[in-house]
């Protein structure tokens, strides 16, 4: 079991980063610092997904043109391996590429993460306008200092 953990130290580091972000979310009383912690947590999850999709000794998931591949392998240009008819390219699909599916999912997640971050920050600014503070304990003190009609307790 220890050997497996050592082989998968990527995941162990990602878990440490994830827990650091979680601790920032839990322990910090400042709302902006909480959002930074959320962002760190989120980026760590992205790292885990991308690590799963990595294939050792593989290329990034961008198809090589058959012409370029022949050039790379043999060192000199061989025209016979080049274009097919109609202007299209032939691609090499039998060499190892990393898994593109996690990349697509994480691309979507990054953009959605920024959208939620923008909403969260807008809420923080509104809270600052109303309460005059973005510290959690001070907001709670104000909340408990007034009754529902807004007159002081």
């Amino acid at each position: 079991m220890l050997g497996t953990v050592f082989d998968n130290y990527h995941y162990a580091v990602v878990i440490i980063l994830m827990m650091t972000g979680l601790y920032t979310v839990f322990a910090s009383g400042n709302l902006i610092k909480k959002l930074v912690g959320l962002s760190v947590f989120q980026t760590s999850v992205f790292l885990m997904y991308i690590t799963i999709g990595k294939v050792m000794d593989a290329q990034p998931p961008i198809l090589e043109k058959a012409k370029d591949y022949a050039l790379n392998v043999s060192g000199n240009y061989t025209a016979a391996a080049g274009e097919s008819g109609g202007g299209g390219y032939q691609f090499v699909t039998d060499i190892a590429y990393s898994n593109p599916l996690p990349h697509v999912l994480i691309l979507t997640a990054i953009v959605v993460g920024v959208a939620t971050l923008a909403i969260g920050l807008a809420l923080v600014v509104r809270i600052r306008e109303v309460y005059g503070t973005i510290e959690e304990d001070e907001i709670s003190a104000i909340d408990y200092g007034y009754n529902l009609e807004g007159t002081s307790r």
Binding site: I32, L35, V36, S39, T43, F46, I50, T51, G53, K54, V55, A58, Q59, P60, P61, I62, S98, P102, H103, I106, L107, I110, V111, G113, V114, L117, A118, L121
Partner: peptide, 23 residues
């Protein structure tokens, strides 16, 4: 380094750029 080049430039532009500006 993990072969995710598209994710890398999206993270650099959106995660390190736009998110930092918003914050």
């Amino acid at each position: 380094s993990l072969d995710a080049v598209d994710v890398a430039f999206t993270e650099a532009a959106v995660g390190a750029g736009v998110a930092t500006i918003l914050m």
